[in-house]
Amino acid sequence: MRKNYNFAFLDEGSKREIRRAILKGVAIPGYQVPFASREMPIGRGWGTGGLQLTLSCIGPDDTLKVIDQGSDASVNAVSIRGLVRETTGVETTTATQEATLIQSRHRIPERPLTRDQLLVLQVPTPEPLRTYEARETVTKRLHAEAEYTGAYLELFEQIVRYGTTTTGADHPVMVEGRYVMAPSPIPRYDNAKLDMAENLTLLGAGREKKIYAVPPYTHVESLAFDDYPFVTEEFEGAHCHRCGATGVYLTQTVDPATGEQIWMCSDTDYCDQRVEAASSASAAKGGDAR
């Protein structure tokens, strides 16, 4: 069955074209490069942009990790991981540090990525000026002229309406002082992870047919006003109910045992590794004590 496909599903011509778009994106950080998005065996809007980036970059020696909202186990992550493994035969992992290629939706792993790792983010709406200006021809010109009034105006409107700019994910960033970019719907907490990162981040929007990139060691600054500085989500006093972590991105759930509201690490691998480390440490301690 696998033999019916080319390695990594896409034909070599398609991969070459996507790689050319990637190279252009890397050369112009934050700039949205159009590409001929292919039909994928998953529905558009389910990460086809990210998937095409992954399939174009992956080699037989890669180790793949796929996460959705920080979890390796969600249906979406499982099916993308399965598809790539089926068509490439590569190793997969859940451990962030073991992966050479990580495809993600809505999160960047807590553990800082290294120069040997590639992060692929799935993007639903790549154009940060879209609600300000509906016409693609106009937004293209606005980017060309670095005219970003629209991006600030949206933040201003949030302040007028809600008294704060802290209403959502996908907070726009200025990349290397030139292009304003939608970082994809990662929490504001993760924006800082893009700034001067060691790794290359590629962003792909399948439906909108756009690829863009943040190369290693690129300045990425979240947009803000002088008197309304950028702030991330706050978890004052909260810690992960399972591993005890603080200073990470937490999500709220209900403890099935007690019915209580509790916080948990959104990055499940990070949480698992902490739990494991704690239990082996206490086992080791137990050994010493004996």
């Binding site: 005219e147 009034t149 600030y152 105006l153 201003f156 409107e157 302040i159 007028v160 309406r161 006003f225 002088d226 008197d227 309304y228």
Partner: peptide, 21 residues
């Protein structure tokens, strides 16, 4: 679809003002 205040602020933002107050 933007508030009146935002409509008025737009030209100021365009002119480089970054102070909400």
């Amino acid at each position: 679809n933007f508030s009146s205040l935002s409509n008025i602020a737009e030209k100021q933002i365009a002119a480089g003002v970054r102070n909400v107050h």
